[in-house]
């Protein structure tokens, strides 16, 4: 079995079961920052636990901006894998994060919107919030290469 077949099967299983554990095990960094995911109908809700190690500013305390970026990039990648028939992990080309509010040391959520899906490139928008969706702590957009090896 080619690795890509393996991956397709893993995504198909996650899509049908709604259980993310096996897929997330393929991304050790997701465990490092305490990322989990939950399918809610057509939407996927990503969550990052307020791990002490995710702190950037210990005085406030506040989440590290780089961790927020890592969380949003992972959410965008997983969202694409679940939405599209991709046969490999989409490769992030660029990522832009706007920091709107300081991230407190509490659970952080993210949802994604697929702005455009081309044959080779996709544009994904991510919003991360803590209190409610209307007051995001950060927004991001990223471009992904979908089929780099063909």
């Amino acid at each position: 079995m080619k690795p890509s077949d393996d991956l397709v099967q893993l995504i198909t299983e996650t899509q049908s079961s709604g259980r993310w554990e096996t897929l997330l095990e393929q991304i050790p960094y997701a465990g490092f920052i305490g990322l989990t995911a939950q399918s809610m109908g057509d939407e996927i809700l990503f969550r990052m636990e307020p791990l002490d190690s995710n702190t950037g500013n210990p005085l406030l305390p506040a989440l590290h901006g780089g961790v927020i970026a890592g969380f949003m990039e992972t959410a965008a990648t997983l969202n694409l894998m679940m939405r599209l028939d991709v046969h490999q992990v989409p490769k992030v080309v660029d990522l832009t994060v706007d920091y709107l509010r300081s991230g407190k040391l509490k659970p952080t959520y993210a949802t994604c919107v697929l702005n455009r899906q081309g044959r080779r490139v996709a544009n994904v928008q991510v919003s991360a919030w803590q209190k409610n969706r209307e007051t995001p702590i950060a927004t991001a957009r990223a471009h992904f290469l979908l089929d780099d090896e063909s």
Partner: peptide, 24 residues
């Protein structure tokens, strides 16, 4: 470190590590 991996199959470091290094 192993927990910095983002893509186990290709053995690549996650972009989040790069974001944090750049931001810091």
């Amino acid at each position: 470190a192993d927990h910095l991996i983002g893509n186990s199959r290709k053995q690549l470091i996650h972009g989040g590590v790069i974001s944090t290094l750049l931001d810091t």
